[in-house]
Nucleic acid binder design. Structure first.
Lengths: 153, 153
DNA sequence: GTTGAAACGTGGGGGCT
DNA sequence: AGCCCCCACGTTTCAAC
């Protein structure tokens, strides 16, 4: 069987490969191969292994929200009273693709979300929807100071 | 001149292309071409335009932090007293690659950060460093409920 | 992990509507 | 201006080593 889920130790070459493919997700196997000083075939084998072990979970183009019309970014913290509100939250998440990130956390705020919006009117529409689940507090984002890939120690 | 920064209206085909390349950042031009029902050349031209306009800012592999040894994820909010503490924050961000995201926001908490850590000991080391800049509050993340690409409306 | 050869995808130029 | 076809070249794939 092609053991796809086994946890294997990552050596230095794997680390270099992960680092390279995080920096440039569209780098060709040949590019990656010279970077990690291996043959193309060996590079492909390692990359496939990382994908099958679900260490690499996806490849994605990054689209600048501002460049496609989202002038605003906000962080919304939401508290829910009762037990788990996963269903309600899932519904809102599905209704609003502009909620680009949602974390369930410890502490006062049970959910933390990051939202992109074309303007305040647009943001209000989404927060109104969220406020029906639980009390929220909204902060606008001045600047994305850092957005770094997963470090590979 | 090769006008690289002009804002151009994105048509339906561009939207489809952005959506496709966000879903699979490693899709070949041929794959993308059939998806958006265009020739390979036209697809390539549009993709290059999106890159040159900085609408597509990067391509990256997504690495699962848990799979590479980070058992914990935390959200840290930090308040700074005086004017701008960009220099201090930049230093800490550089010292700790495990701070994977940092936003400067309105409201009480001036900075919001997302941190991955191998354990509580590891997390403590980073928060101790942050606490020297300003008062912080730390929440652990139970679950990443959603992590969605930028919607293209 | 490496090599090699066939299949496939890519990038530029010309011609089309 | 934008798209399509063509062709040389680079890349990926899959064998055998």
């Amino acid at each position: 069987m092609t053991n796809g889920g086994a946890l294997k130790e990552l050596d230095e070459t794997d680390h270099a490969l992960l680092e390279a493919v995080q920096r440039d997700g569209r780098a060709t196997l040949s590019d990656l191969a010279v970077e990690i000083r291996l043959s193309v075939s060996a590079t492909r084998a390692r990359l496939r292994a990382l994908e099958e072990q679900r260490i690499i979970t996806a490849y994605a183009a990054h689209v600048d929200p501002e460049a496609v019309g989202y002038a605003l970014r906000a962080v919304v913290r939401m508290k829910v009273n009762g037990p788990l509100f996963d269903a309600e939250v899932a519904t809102v998440l599905e209704r609003h693709p502009q909620i680009v990130r949602c974390l369930r956390v410890t502490g006062e705020s049970c959910y933390m979300m990051e939202i992109v919006a074309t303007g305040l009117r647009d943001l209000e529409e989404i927060t109104d929807d969220l406020a029906q689940i639980g009390p929220i507090s909204t902060d606008l984002v001045y600047e994305v100071v850092a957005d770094k890939p997963t470090p590979v120690p």
